[in-house]
Design a binder for these strands. Structure first.
Lengths: 221, 221
DNA sequence: GATTTGCATTTTGTATACATTGTACAATAT
DNA sequence: ATATTGTACAATGTATACAAAATGCAAATC
């Protein structure tokens, strides 16, 4: 485990600070799957007491990022290729649901916002900082999610996306993939604007399938 | 808030016992939406210290059953009709996904198991204890979930179902509804056996729609 | 009378102490 | 040599103590 540093925010309770810190460390792979999360050593590393650590671990547990065995402690959950496929299978379905709802509910302003976030993405295309680009991608999808006006759907999609956080850079590393991505986004926007549910779902499915391929390729290598 | 009693299980840590107890109390409506969850009073009521209470609340928070405001504490989340519709909208989609996967993956034994759990449900039809019947219904759906062989899907569906726990008795109270339910289950089994995805999804959608109607009727009354 | 200020109380946030359980390893018995 | 048991140690589980913030209310001020 690398050195951990608290992402300090005075307005947040320590448990949330610890939670965010640990989650990020796990998703980035800084704490590896299978590694034990020991309360005392984490408390020392982060300079807080065991209490906030424990409460953070409880949350990680419910998110499925760590596995608890009573009296033995927490270990970072292993993620198998099967797990990832499961996540993507559900996500594909819900993304299709999201664009369907977007087709039905999107206003003129919503379409505008979609186009703007798409534009922002394009502007970042040549940005060497891939993190920026990845976040522009996230924001694009966030706009679609918001349009669905379904809190539960948004919550679940955000969680599923989080599960794949550590692979988020993979599918935008490649220049060719990136232009495909832009094209797919454009297609989706167009379909939503035309309120063409069938097409929107088709493009969306395609979009996720491409991600799946890239990630699967990365994992089996 | 009624008296709470711990659901004691010597093999579970107190935090989990408290978590299960509080969750059930919230879902059953024994602790009402808007009500505050105060650590000290809960600790006294349940006869444990604040620590397990706090850890249980952290989990309830992530499940969306309570809302935390830093330095102010936890209150039971209000559930609006809109929230329920959101839940059902997502659930409908994922239930359809589940039966589709079931059509593709079900073995002979799986079909047998489905029929058995369906039979058990029928046997409980005249059981005056509605809880038993409700649980037989749950077990039927569990079989379908298991057949999908998608952990993430199962986890999300279980969570969504939990959100509706407090209404689970509504749609089996009525004798007429009950026979409809049985018929719908039979239809779904048949479609899965025939590997007829279209029909299976159709029946499944219908099944959820009926629940939605019953619950909506209950709520708007 | 309305508003503000200050204090007491309550409640949550965090740290620490104590209890219990699990683990590793060595010593002993078979 | 293997199995078993006992013991020390380490980690988690639980309780409690202390700190800090929020709340309610009363007194003071305008």
């Amino acid at each position: 485990m690398k050195d951990l540093k608290l992402i300090i925010d005075n307005y947040l309770p320590l448990r949330d600070v610890v939670f965010i810190t640990l989650r990020e460390a796990i998703l980035k792979g800084e704490i590896e799957p299978g590694e034990r999360l020991m309360e005392i050593s984490l408390a020392e590393k982060l300079g807080v007491s065991r209490t906030p650590i424990r409460e953070a671990i409880r949350k990680l547990e419910l998110e499925g990022l760590v596995i608890m065995t009573p009296r033995k402690g927490a270990v970072v959950a292993e993620i198998t290729l099967k797990d990832l496929r499961d996540v993507l299978e559900v996500r594909k379905n819900l993304e299709k649901m999201a664009v369907e709802l977007a087709c039905q509910k999107a206003t003129e302003e919503d379409i505008m916002e979609l186009k703007q976030s798409h534009q922002k993405f394009i502007e970042n295309m040549s940005n060497p900082d891939l993190t920026e680009l990845a976040e522009a991608d996230v924001r694009f999808h966030d706009v679609i999610y918001r349009i669905t006006d379904n809190k539960r759907l948004i919550q679940i999609l955000n969680n599923l996306r989080e599960q794949m956080y550590r692979y988020r850079l993979e599918y935008i590393k490649d220049e060719k993939q990136r232009s495909i991505l832009v094209h797919e986004h454009a297609q989706i926007i167009q379909a939503i604007e035309n309120k063409d549910i069938t097409k929107a779902k088709e493009f969306s499915e395609n979009h996720i399938n491409n991600q799946e391929k890239t990630i699967a390729a990365k994992l089996t290598s």
